[in-house]
Each structure stands twice: as structure tokens, then as C-alpha cells.
Simulated scan of single mutants.
Amino acid sequence: MLLWINGPFGGGKTQTAHEIQRRLPGSVICDPEHVGFGLHRMAPPSLRGDFQDLPAWRQGVYEVLDRALNGHDGVVVVPMTVVEPSYFRETVGRLRERGHDVRHFALLADRETVLHRLRERGLGHAVRFAAGKDAPLRRESFAVSKLDLCLERLREAEFAEHLSTDRLTVPQAADRIAARCGLTLTANTDSALRGRLRRAWTSARHIRFD
């Protein structure tokens, strides 16, 4: 089974994916961003745009995930924002046509909720303290610029199942997804503090400087 966790940038995809992987024995995370980062690094800076626009990215993601699903016995968890319908069909759609059990979830939230999460994720607290309350949003300018488009597109029926996360914690969102897929996660034994530290570490590991 493949769990594709979609959603706006800053909407909690990566945190939810890692929470599921942490509590679902045998599961692995396969992050399609790494294919895109590799393609970017091969190109001169002047030619780098949205890597999803490259046919090589869509084909590469399909091939790697097809191989992972054929060769790995556990659940494959994929955190990735895809809001262009044709790109969605070239990745999620092709994997389904191939016969794989692909469960897709779009994490949705109000605009202000996502903006708040963008301020808080990663090094948001430290940056805000040093440079003012809007600094994290300047760092996340790409995510903010795409927010309205993401929320509009992902509400379409093609991108179901939808999961509203405004009032859900990350562990609760993971529990909802697992339940809808008939999967059983191990109990979440994190204290509130440990959970915050774990999520901060996950965010810090995914900050890119190139």
C-alpha cells in the first residue's frame, strides 16, 4: 500500500508522514522532493524553476515508487504537494493504473491555520525572535505564494480523500488516516513536550539552503 499525503506547503504533510512511519512498523518514507532536488542540482541556477514541471520528475517519481511498491513489503508513505491535475494523473493515477493500492489524502485547513503553521515550523521561533514576527513568512515566501492555489485545487473531488486538520494534532491526523486505510498504528506515548521537540527536529531536518 502507498499512502500519498498531499496538502498545501506548510499544511503538515511531512510531520504527518513521519508520525505514521514512526508508529507503523515496516513502513518507509519515499520523498519525491529528492528527485526534484537532484534535477535542480544538475541544472544551472538560471534554468531552475518548479521541478514538477519537468517530465523527468513525474516519470522518475513514478518509476521509483513503482519499484518501492514492488520490492518493499511494508507501507510506503509519500509526503508531496501536487495540485496540477495532469501531474497528479501522471504520478498517482499511473501508479493506480499499474495495479498498486494507492490511498491519497489531501490535508486541508483554513488559510490562517496554514499561515500560523508556516510561522512555527522549523526555526520559526528563533528567526522571529531575531528578525521580527514576519521573518519566517519571508523565508517561506514560496509556500505563501502557492497557498491559495493549493487550497482551491485540493478541495476538488479529484484530490479526495480530504481531511480537515484545523482542529487536529499531528498524531490525531495520523490516526485518522490510518483508520481510514484499515491500518493500526502503535500507541502515541509522547508527552506534549517530547512531541513538540520531535516535530521541531523533523522540520529542521527538512530545511534546505540551496
Rank of each mutant, 00 (worst) to 15 (best):
residue 70 N to Q: 14
residue 195 G to H: 11
residue 34 H to K: 15
residue 132 G to R: 02
residue 137 L to M: 07
residue 167 R to W: 02
residue 93 G to C: 04
residue 103 R to E: 00
residue 71 G to C: 09
residue 90 E to L: 06
residue 22 R to M: 02
residue 47 L to N: 07
residue 143 A to F: 02
residue 112 E to S: 11
residue 159 F to T: 13
residue 46 S to D: 11
residue 180 R to D: 11
residue 151 L to E: 10
residue 146 K to H: 11
residue 172 Q to V: 11
residue 77 V to L: 05
residue 168 L to F: 03
residue 56 A to G: 02
residue 181 C to N: 10
residue 148 D to C: 01
residue 112 E to Y: 06
residue 107 L to T: 10
residue 193 L to N: 15
residue 133 K to L: 05
residue 106 A to H: 06
residue 188 N to R: 11
residue 186 T to G: 13
residue 33 E to N: 14
residue 159 F to N: 12
residue 199 R to G: 01
residue 185 L to E: 04
residue 200 A to I: 13
residue 36 G to D: 06
residue 40 H to Q: 07
residue 25 P to K: 03
residue 54 L to S: 06
residue 173 A to F: 00
residue 180 R to L: 10
residue 172 Q to M: 13
residue 101 D to I: 05
residue 110 D to V: 03
residue 94 R to H: 01
residue 5 I to Y: 05
residue 67 R to V: 13
residue 151 L to T: 07
residue 102 V to K: 03
residue 112 E to H: 10
residue 121 R to D: 01
residue 185 L to C: 07
residue 145 S to F: 04
residue 189 T to P: 02
residue 82 V to R: 12
residue 129 F to W: 03
residue 118 L to W: 04
residue 1 M to G: 12
residue 97 E to G: 11
residue 110 D to H: 13
residue 92 V to K: 05
residue 80 M to W: 10
residue 181 C to K: 12
residue 8 P to I: 05
residue 65 L to A: 06
residue 19 E to K: 06
residue 209 F to S: 09
residue 41 R to T: 09
residue 188 N to D: 15
residue 198 R to E: 13
residue 18 H to C: 04
residue 92 V to G: 03
residue 74 G to F: 08
residue 2 L to S: 07
residue 140 E to T: 06
residue 20 I to S: 07
residue 171 P to C: 11
residue 158 E to P: 02
residue 72 H to F: 06
residue 168 L to H: 12
residue 6 N to Y: 07
residue 15 Q to I: 09
residue 45 P to L: 00
residue 162 H to D: 10
residue 84 E to A: 14
residue 51 F to Y: 13
residue 133 K to E: 14
residue 149 L to S: 11
residue 104 H to L: 11
residue 8 P to C: 07
residue 171 P to G: 12
residue 102 V to M: 05
residue 36 G to T: 06
residue 139 R to E: 08
residue 97 E to K: 09
residue 157 A to L: 08
residue 80 M to T: 07
residue 32 P to A: 03
residue 131 A to P: 00
residue 167 R to G: 12
residue 120 E to F: 00
residue 188 N to I: 02
residue 101 D to A: 14
residue 202 T to C: 14
residue 43 A to N: 02
residue 188 N to L: 01
